[in-house]
Amino acid sequence: MMTVRVDLRKWGKSNLHYIIAWIVMGLVVFVIIVKTLGWYTLALIGPFLPYLILILARLRRELKKGLQKGLQKGLIK
């Protein structure tokens, strides 16, 4: 059970179908929750908003790192 290290760009490319499916399912569930709970949705997602910001910031940093590596190696023009 070792930690799995992945190249985000490579992983994203080869698993694009999974990523799209997860995003679609997540969005549909989110719509169902908003339609069912209304304003109470804020009570559910409120505590996790700082987490979301952290995740997005990390993702941005990782993608930037990957982009720089790709540019250095001449893989991206």
Partner: peptide, 22 residues
């Protein structure tokens, strides 16, 4: 069903993953 996930904060803040992900 979701409050337990609040303990994910240290994982989001750490810079290096642990050797064993568990």
């Amino acid at each position: 069903a979701n409050i337990s996930s609040l303990d994910a904060l240290p994982t989001l803040l750490r810079t290096k993953p642990p050797k064993v992900h568990t």
